[in-house]
Structure formats: C-alpha cells, structure tokens
C-alpha cells in the first residue's frame, strides 16, 4: 500500500508545536494548541476530528491563510522542504500557495468563480506560477481537465461553473490545485458536499493522481471511512490538540484514545447487529466540544469520557508513544484497550 511512500526520505513538511490563536471579544480562542506532525513525500496523512477541533485551522495556518484581523500563528514552526515558513514574507508565501502547496476546499459549488470560465481559472494559476504563455497555460488547462477525467475537455474548458455538476466542479478544483505540480495537496473535506457515489469517484481520482504525480496529501475530514480508504498515517484532533496518531491499520485495529473510539462507534454501520429486529441506537459522544477560550486544566475530553478518572480532570495527559509508531494522549490507554471494539 505504501509503495510510493518513502519511509526513509526526509519529510517535506514538518509542523512542530503549532499554535494558532484567534483574538475575539470573549477572549483568546486557542484553535490549534501545540500540534506537531510530519509528512513524507508521496504520503497521505489524514487529520480527523469533529467540527471545531482545529483541523481546518491547522491547514490554513500552514498556508498562512488565517484572516489577519481575526487570528494568527502565535508559536511553533512549519518547515517545508527544510525551509521555515513562519518567517517568510507575504510575497514568498504567495509564491508557494497554489504552486508548491495547493489546497482544495469543501464547497465545490462556491469555490469556483461563477463569472469566469473554468479554463481561465486554471490557466490563471499556471500562468502566474509557472510563467507559461497564455496559449501554453490554456493547453495546460485542457490537459489538466483530461487528467481529472472530464470528458470533452476542449469544450468544457470554455464553460462556466454553473454548467457543471458538483462532482465535475470538484474535479475542476482538483485540476486547478494540481496544475502546478505541487509537492503537497491539502484537501479540506474534499468530498463532504458530494453524494456518496461521487465521493468514491473523487477519492479514487485523488489517489490515482497521487500515485501518478507523487504528491503528498493532507486529507482533512470528519469521515473515518474516507480516512480508511485513502490515508496511510492518521492524526486524531480534539479541541485544538493532537490526541492520537498512528498508521491507519494500527489506528483502526487498536484505537487507544477514548475519543477515537467514540468517533468509530458513531459511524453508522449497515451490518449493525439486529437485536430483536431493531437496529441498535447509533452511538454518540455525549456533550459538546469544550470552550477553547477557557481551557480546563485537565484532559479536554474528560467531561465527555467514559473512562475518566480524577487524574484526568486535574492533569493534561501528555502525548506518549504507546505502541509501534502509535502515540496517544490518555492516562487510561490500558483500560481503553481492554474494552473490545464493537
């Protein structure tokens, strides 16, 4: 499975102790609070967690796309190909965005400018970053459209976004993001707005292109199914922190953090056991994500956790190595592991 992942190659992206805070009237929101991870060339890294856990902010922080009047990266380091990104000026960042590091967003319906043809939107990107002529950029746009398997690219390239279906638009977004051969593609919930059959097509397409182009992918999602299908390494985030990290098989075999277990139990299953002809109630994680303005002294998941102890409420569990390449931030890992998965 990890044929293209070179485990020995140095990581192309290293994020260390990233802290992104938003400054609101109600106080400082610690949206990302000390997250570290690294990404190797050609690897697919999944970042999972529920809404508001800081996954998207982590991605936006890498490209420095946090609106400056709202918040900023206050600490930590982001190294891309050994180069520190936090110190770069705005012009150098612009050179990276869409060129070396690309991003695709959740909403294919609104992520394309409705008044410009899709060809123009792709060509613009290529012209700017690769310095191609207008003609060459246009040819590149057609080439990218056929790469993402849009039929009849010569005609489609002249069309406007409203003439395309949701799945096609997401293909266009992918074409645009990959048009400059980026090293890293950040996909922020790329399939959430699509229906299930289209989701599978888009994921297959992304994986296929990854193999072909050798692009590393950061897959941000709340959908564990997407993670299982696409990723090699997985990070689980909760309340701005990384609570667990493991290779994908290991994570699904032996989830160590109660939150990861909760996420897994909350996935609806078609093969769920029938008890007296009634499907068991879908497991939910009780409670809501805690406030990020006034963090508790202990584990942020403690109020919602079935395994919590007094220690959990008082002290923050450190992220520790608990197995082969498996990190988790929980005091009660042993007890969690004893309980079998449903």
């Amino acid at each position: 499975m990890n044929a293209v992942t070179d485990q020995l190659a140095p990581p192309i992206l290293e994020v260390e102790d990233l802290r992104t805070h938003f400054f609101t009237r109600d106080g400082v929101v610690r949206a990302v609070n000390g997250v570290s991870f690294s990404l190797r060339p050609g690897e697919t890294l999944g970042i999972v967690g529920e809404s508001g856990c800081g996954k998207s902010v982590t991605a936006l922080s890498i490209l420095r796309l946090i609106p400056r009047d709202l918040g900023r990266v206050v600490g930590g380091s982001i190294r891309f190909e050994g180069r520190e990104l936090t110190g770069l000026d705005e012009q150098e960042m612009r050179g990276l965005r869409g060129h070396r590091i690309s991003m695709i967003f959740q909403e294919p319906m609104t992520s394309l400018n409705p008044v410009l043809t899709i060809g123009l939107q792709i060509a613009e990107n290529v012209q700017r970053h690769l310095g191609l002529s207008k003609k060459a950029a246009w040819d590149r746009a057609v080439e990218m459209l056929s790469l993402v398997k849009i039929a009849d690219p010569h005609r489609r390239v002249h069309e406007y976004p409203h003439q395309l279906s949701g799945g096609m638009r997401q293909r266009v977004m992918i074409a645009m993001a990959l048009s400059c051969d980026p090293q890293i593609l950040i996909a922020d919930e790329p399939t959430t707005a699509l229906d299930v059959t289209i989701q599978a097509q888009i994921l297959d397409l992304m994986l296929e292109l990854k193999e072909k182009l050798g692009t590393a992918i950061i897959m941000i999602t709340h959908d564990l199914g997407v993670v299982a299908e696409t990723c090699q390494q997985v990070i689980v985030m909760y309340a701005g922190r990384k609570v667990e990290e493991a290779p994908v098989e290991e994570l699904f075999d032996r989830p160590m953090h109660p939150y990861t277990r909760g996420l897994m139990a909350a996935v609806p299953r078609l093969d769920g056991r029938l008890e007296g002809g009634v499907r068991p109630r879908l497991q939910e994680i009780p409670g809501i994500v805690p406030s990020l303005t006034a963090p508790l002294p202990g584990c942020p998941f403690e109020p919602r956790c079935a395994f919590s102890t007094e220690q959990c409420a008082r002290h923050m569990p450190p992220l520790e190595r608990r197995g082969a390449a498996h990190d988790a931030a929980c005091f009660e890992v042993d007890r969690v592991l004893e309980k079998s998965l449903v």
Binding site: R94, H99, S102, M103, E107, T110, N113, V115, L116, R128
Partner: peptide
C-alpha cells in the same frame, strides 16, 4: 466572503489581480 475568493488567495493571487479578475466581473 465567497469561498472562491479564499480559493484564489490559496492559489497565490495578489490583491490587485484578485480585485480586477475575480471581484470586478461580479460587480458589472
């Protein structure tokens, strides 16, 4: 505030170009 403006920024577009190429046609 539209996502495609964020998208253009994420693609490395400069502010003046963003204004003329992406915002202006919508205002016409």
């Amino acid at each position: 505030e539209q996502p495609y403006i964020d998208g253009a920024v994420a693609g490395g577009t400069k502010a003046p170009r963003l204004l003329v190429r992406h915002v202006l046609p919508n205002a016409v």
